[in-house]
Structures are given as C-alpha cells and as structure tokens.
Design a protein around this nucleic acid. Structure first.
Ligand SMILES: [Mn+2]
Ligand SMILES: [Mn+2]
Ligand SMILES: [Zn+2]
Ligand SMILES: [Zn+2]
Lengths: 161, 161
DNA sequence: TACATTATTGCAACATTAGTGCAATTACAA
DNA sequence: TTGTAATTGCACTAATGTTGCAATAATGTA
C-alpha cells in the first residue's frame, strides 16, 4: 500500500492532543503504563484536584462516560505504579490521591498528613505537613504511618464568617 | 391469677446470666441502650479482643447466628452511644473497636494510635500511645486526629525468630 | 405480676462497591 | 504496516451498606 505523506511533525501531533495531554502521556509512560483516553482523563482529574477522590466522585466528573470496571482497574493500576496512593478513611469507601514525586511501583512515599473537612467533606493532601514520629511500645516494629485530621478547611472557615 | 412465689433474688438472677453478662448489662444500660442477647454477645466479643473488628469478622465469632442487619445496627448504635469507635482502614470495610472510658454519645475520646500488623493483619488499639500534636498550615481548624501505624506486632516479631 | 409503651429485631428489598473471566479492541514497537 | 501484548467493555457474582415496616422483646409503671 502506498505510503501516506507525513503531514504533521511529532510535535504538532503532540500539540493536537491539547495543552495537558502530552505531559499526561509522559507521566503514564514513565511508569510503564500505556496511554489511553480513559487513563488520560482520570489522571487529568487528579491533577486538577488536590483532594482525595472516590470512584463515585470521579465518575461524575469524567468528560466521557466509560465502563465502571475500567475505572476500577485504572485506579488500581495507578496505585500499583506509584501514581496514586490510597487515603485512609473510616467511611468504608476507598479514596485515592495523586502521589508526589518519589513514589514508584516498589515503594510509596506519602508520609504526609491528610485533612478531612467536616463542613465541605473534602479530603485534602497536606504534603507540606509531615507525620510526626511516634514512640511505639517495646516489641512493635514500625513500618509506616498514616494520619488523618478532621476539622474545618480554610475555605469553609472563611465562608462561615 | 395467683401470685407465683419468688424463687430467686435479683442477685441470683443476675448471677444466672453468667459471669460476664451482668457487667455487660450495666455497660449497655449506662449508655441508655437496652440489654438484648444480641447486643450482649457483640459487646462481649469486643471485650475479649483488643483488636478492631469488621462486621464479617464478628459474624464468624458470634455464638448465636442472628440477622446481618441487626449486627449492622448494633455496631452503629454502639458507636453513637460511645461504646465503640471507628478505626481507620483502607480495605474498604468499616472497622470498630471498644472505646476506653470517657467516650459518650456526645463525644469520642480515642486520641490513641492504632497499629496494623502486616503479618497477622490484626489492627490493635494502643491506648497508651497518644497521637502527637500536628501543626496545621494557617487557616485550618483542628478537630481531631486518627493515626494508623503499619508494621509488625510483638507476637509476630517473636514468632519470626 | 400484668400491662402499656417504646426500643429492638428480622425480613424484604434495594443501592453501592468490589472483584473475576473472557472476548473484542487498542496501543505500541518492531 | 503489522503482530503482540495490554487494555477495555460486558456479563456475572460477591460483599457491604442502607431503609422501611411489621413482629417481637425489653423496660417502667401500676
Ligand atoms: Mn496524599
Ligand atoms: Mn482504638
Ligand atoms: Zn471545607
Ligand atoms: Zn501480628
């Protein structure tokens, strides 16, 4: 079959993906994951929000409606490759948030505090707040720690004035 | 109808409930909850364990098999009256543990660390380990904190020698 | 003890979340 | 362009969470 002339450079093609899509591709490929429209949309949502999100919340925000199971598997694969981390909760549903630099498929480094606002019920990552050391009783071997603080977030404090 | 003679004193009746049942009654009534066989069994299980338990785990341990919904509601009512508190988890199911003294339906005082052993996967309450203070960024109002530490528990450390 | 009142239980029904298997489709690299 | 392997969508199943309501049981009072 005849070769079709190249109409666009690779850069023009990347640009045609939109402002954010090319970096998304890099982020995904950097972890060994293939880029798909669905994965791009999910990752983009996490980049637009600094909050931990549930699957249900994501479904409402996604630009294209795709299969629930696909989303389920995307979240798990993102976690496995160090793109997302689970955020502890006592609600019974799983929450994920974007990992900061340094997380990989081998190890997560999200030793920061999470904050849940009891007013707007958002769960925020506070990457600048480290989890303080805790002295465990004799015999316990420390692995890692997760800290969730409940309270009122700055936005809700302001709007309540 | 003829009056039936009293055969047992109130103390003998309480004793006939078994060693632990009378105190259970007191615990429940102290919080305004009625004593029932089902509630007694659930509370007894929590008293026998120093770990946080899921509904599924409780169902396997309960001496009498009663309705799933009843257990669901017992756990929620126990939490509401300050008998149990939720424990952080990322498995997707809710975990409860026995509250120490000082919790009421108005307020929970479980500012202690929880420890999850990655070997035996038990989640233990460490009431003697307080959650350290955390300095939040400007604008955030602190409510309360929950800290879960992953690692190896003393029992599992010993048995791995 | 008997009764009235009110809380609790069990059942039915439904909603949400989790998870697996497999065939069709798509991404990627040769 | 094409082959291969990863990813997706669909069907289906399991587990957990939640509410309404009628039957039942616990408690206080007479
Ligand atoms: Mn985070
Ligand atoms: Mn506890
Ligand atoms: Zn808020
Ligand atoms: Zn252990």
């Amino acid at each position: 079959m005849m070769e079709i002339p190249v109409l666009f450079s690779i850069f023009e093609i990347e640009e045609s993906l939109g402002v954010e899509e090319a970096p998304l591709k890099d982020m995904l490929r950097g972890t060994g994951l293939r880029y798909t429209k669905q994965r791009g949309e999910v990752l983009q949502l996490f980049r637009e929000h600094d909050t931990a999100l549930t699957q249900a919340e994501l479904e409402k925000m996604l630009p294209s409606q795709f299969d629930r199971i696909t989303l389920y598997r995307i979240l798990r694969s993102f976690e496995a490759s160090g793109l997302l981390h689970k955020v502890l909760d006592d609600s019974g549903t799983t929450r994920f948030a974007l990992c900061r630099t340094g997380c990989s498929e081998h190890e997560h480094h999200d030793e920061h505090v999470h904050f849940r606002c009891s007013s707007c019920s958002k769960t925020l990552c506070l990457p600048e707040v480290a989890i303080p050391d805790v002295k465990l009783p004799k015999g316990y071997v420390f692995g890692d720690a997760k800290l969730l603080i409940d309270g009122i977030c700055p936005e809700c404090v302001i709007s309540s004035n």
